[in-house]
Structures are given as C-alpha cells and as structure tokens.
Computed example of a mutant assay.
Amino acid sequence: MNETELQFRTAAFGGFQKQDVLTYLETSAREQAEKLSALQRELEEAKKGKAEAEEKASAEEKRLSTLEEENKRLAADLADREASLSKLSAERADLAAQVAGLTQEVKKLTPAAASYEAIKDRTAGIELEAHGRAQAIEQEAQAKVKKTKAEMECWFGKLQSAYSRLRADLDATITHASGELDRVNQSLEGISREFDAHDAALKALQETVETLSGPKAPQPLPLEEK
C-alpha cells in the first residue's frame, strides 16, 4: 500500500476523519478475509488431490501383490510340469534298458535256436513284439514330451507377457504418482509463500493502525481555503 492511499481527509478540528479510517480498515479486513478463504480452498483441494494420489498408489500396490501371487502359482505349476517331464524321461530310459536287455537275451538264444526252428521262430516273434512295444512306448513318450514342452512354452510366454504388462503399468503408475506429488508440493510451497506475504502485510497494517491511534499522530493537512 503506497503513501497516497494512507492519506485520509482531515477533520474540521484537526486529525483524520474517523469514517475514512474505519472504511479503510473494513475494506482491508474484507479483502484479507477473501484472500485467506481462497487460499484455504486451494489448500483443501491440494490435500484432496494428494489423498487421491495416495489412494491410487495403494490400489496399484495391491494389484502388484496379486500379480506376484499369480506369478508364484505359475512358477509352482511350471516346477510340477518339469518334474513330470523328468519322470517321463526316466521311464523312457527304463524302457530303453528293458529293450536292451531283451535284445541281449535274444542274442544269447540265437545260437541255440539255430537247431530248433520252433524256438527260433518264437524268439523272433518275441523280439519283434518287444521291439514293436518299445517303439510304441518310445513314440508315446516322445509325444508326451513334445506336448508338455509346448504347454510349458505357452505358459512361459503368457507369464512373460503378464510380467511385461505389470512392469509397464507399475512404471506408469509410479511416474504419474510422482508427478502428482511434485505438483502438490509445489502448490503447498506457493501457498506457504502467499501466507508469509499476507502475514507481512497484516503486520504492516497493524503497525499503521497503531501509529494512527497512538500519541504521535501525524500532522493534519491544512484545510482547503474556500
């Protein structure tokens, strides 16, 4: 407030006119009250925005926890599939050993079967049957292994895609929340500076009022000559 605005009309018998001073004080108080009310509304809106940002961050943390639990479940399922595949591989190796044993037995029986045509035919039939069974079992085991491998690759692809989406959503959420918090902090700092400025203005106004009402009143301006 400049020096011109502080000059009041003088009364007829010295001093300032009381109504001018009261009007000035009422106007100043009303303006300060309106500014304080506006600042209070801005502060409430900033607090509300901060609360909403914190609530959204909490929801995203819950979502992340749910996805992590799903990831653990899929990892356990994958471990079970790997155990099944290992078991199938062991069964295949056992069948291969049985085939090798049967082959060795056939080789041992072949010299004796040379004199006994019936035994030879029987041995050949057993060998062929065993070989056919071994091939059928091996083909079935290979089919199971291929199927299990394809399922594992499909699940792994889904798991990797879900993780990529989760990571992208989390990064976006963190970036948005960080921006919102920065904006709220800047708004609060601005409000704090506004309050400091208003405090200084009120202090200056109080000092002016004390000066006007104290024993050292300013010299009244001379009356205008008619």
Rank of each mutant, 00 (worst) to 15 (best):
Q160L: 07
E117N: 09
A12K: 15
L128E: 15
G190P: 00
T27L: 12
K56G: 06
K62C: 07
K47Q: 15
S58V: 00
H176P: 00
N71Y: 03
V209C: 04
K108M: 11
H198N: 11
R30W: 07
L78Q: 01
Q19N: 04
S213K: 10
M152A: 11
N185D: 10
E189N: 05
A172M: 04
E60T: 08
A217P: 01
A204S: 12
T23Y: 03
K35Y: 06
Q135M: 11
E61D: 08
E52K: 13
S213P: 00
E55K: 11
K226Y: 04
K47I: 11
L88E: 06
L170D: 11
A53S: 09
Q186K: 14
L22H: 11
L6R: 09
A93K: 02
I126Q: 13
E225A: 15
T123W: 01
A172V: 00
N185C: 00
D80A: 08
G14A: 10
G15F: 12
E69S: 00
I119L: 08
L74F: 04
S89M: 08
N185K: 09
T23G: 10
Y116G: 00
Q40P: 13
T27F: 03
R81E: 04
E52S: 09
K107M: 08
P111F: 11
Y116I: 11
G101N: 11
K107L: 11
L88N: 13
R81L: 08
A75K: 05
E151P: 10
A112N: 01
P215D: 14
I126S: 10
Q32T: 04
L95F: 10
L166W: 10
A96V: 03
W155N: 03
A59F: 01
G101E: 02
K216E: 14
A113D: 08
L6S: 15
V21L: 14
T211F: 02
K216A: 08
L64M: 12
A76C: 05
T23I: 13
V209F: 01
D196E: 06
E82V: 04
K226L: 13
E105Q: 05
L22N: 04
G49F: 14
S37Q: 12
F16C: 07
P218M: 08
A112S: 06
K108P: 00
L102H: 03
A197G: 09
F195A: 01
L67M: 07
A100Y: 05
P215S: 14
A29C: 06
A75N: 01
E105Y: 00
K216S: 12
S65V: 11
L6I: 12
V209Y: 00
E105S: 04
G157S: 12
E44S: 15
T110A: 14
G14D: 12
E82W: 00
W155I: 09
H176E: 12
Q32P: 03
K158S: 11
E105V: 08
